[in-house]
Amino acid sequence: METALETDQLGKRYGNTWALRDCSLHLPAGRIAALVGPNGAGKSTLLHMAVGLLRPDAGTVRVFGETPYDNTAALAEIGFVAQDTPLYRDFTAGELVTMGGKLNRRWDGTLARTRLAQLGIPPDKPVGKLSGGQRAQVALALALAKRPRLLLLDEPVASLDPLARREFLQALMGSVAESGTTVLLSSHLLADLERVCDYLIVLHGARVRLVGPVEDLVAEHRQLVGPRHGDDPIPGVASVVRASHTDRQSTLLVRTDGPIGDTSWAAHEVTLEDVILGYLADGDRPTSNEAWGVPA
C-alpha cells in the first residue's frame, strides 16, 4: 500500500528541549488519521515538519516519498489548515480563493466557490467579520481547492462551538470521501476523533506512544481486572500499558498478542477513548509544591 506520510527517527529541538524525538511512523494513503496528545506533546511540530514549514533536526520526513522542506513540488500535494485557521482578515472569501489561484499551479477555484456557496458564506465580506465556524470552513475550502493528496489539519475545531465543530467535520469527511484524500487531523477532542478517524497516532512527551488502525488497536487492547498483580508475565499479554492497584485487586490496561490464558483475570473490551487515555495518563507527574510554597 502506498505511504502518504512516513517519518523515520524524526526529531526537532528548540534549544535544549526536544519538541519531538525518535518519531517513526507510517501513514498509509487513504486513511483518516487522528493525531492525539496533550498540549505540548509535539503535534504541531510534527505537522509543521510534514508540511515543510520546519526543518527537522534529526531523522527524515517524507510525503509521498518527497522531503517537504523547501520543496514546492511536495507542497503542491499537501493541503494544510494551521492552528486557529489563520486567514488574511481584511480579504474577502472571494479574494482568498483568487489568491489561492495565483499562488498554486494546481487550483480548483470552482470547487472552493461551490463549497462556500453551499455553506452560505458571503463572497464579498471580509473574512475577519465572519464567525469562527465560517472562517474554519473558508480555510478548509482553500486547503481542499489545492486538490491535495494529503490534508493536514492542526486543531481545526478546537475553537469552534459543538455545532460548528460537527458541521466542519461533516464537511471534511464528505469531501475527502469523494476524493480519496489522506487526512491527518490533530485534536484533543477524543469524541470527535472517534467518529471520523480510522487511524490513530498518539504523541506524548515528544515521543510516539501508539500508531495503528483504530479497529486493530481497539481489538488488541483489553482491560483486565483480577487479583493483586506483581510483575509476573500474563500469557497473551504483550505489554501492560497502565496499571492501578488496590490492596486486593489490580486493574490493568494491556495490549494483547493472543487470548488471555489466565482465567483469574476478567477481560473487558475497551473503547478507543480508554486506549488513548491509557497511553496519555502520566504516572509520575512532577509536583511543584516547593515552587508554590505549600506543604506536600
Partner: peptide, 10 residues
C-alpha cells in the same frame, strides 16, 4: 499566523 497559510501554498 498567516505565514502558515501563505508559505504552504505552491
Amino acid at each position: 499566523g498567516t505565514h502558515r497559510l501563505v508559505w504552504t501554498q505552491g
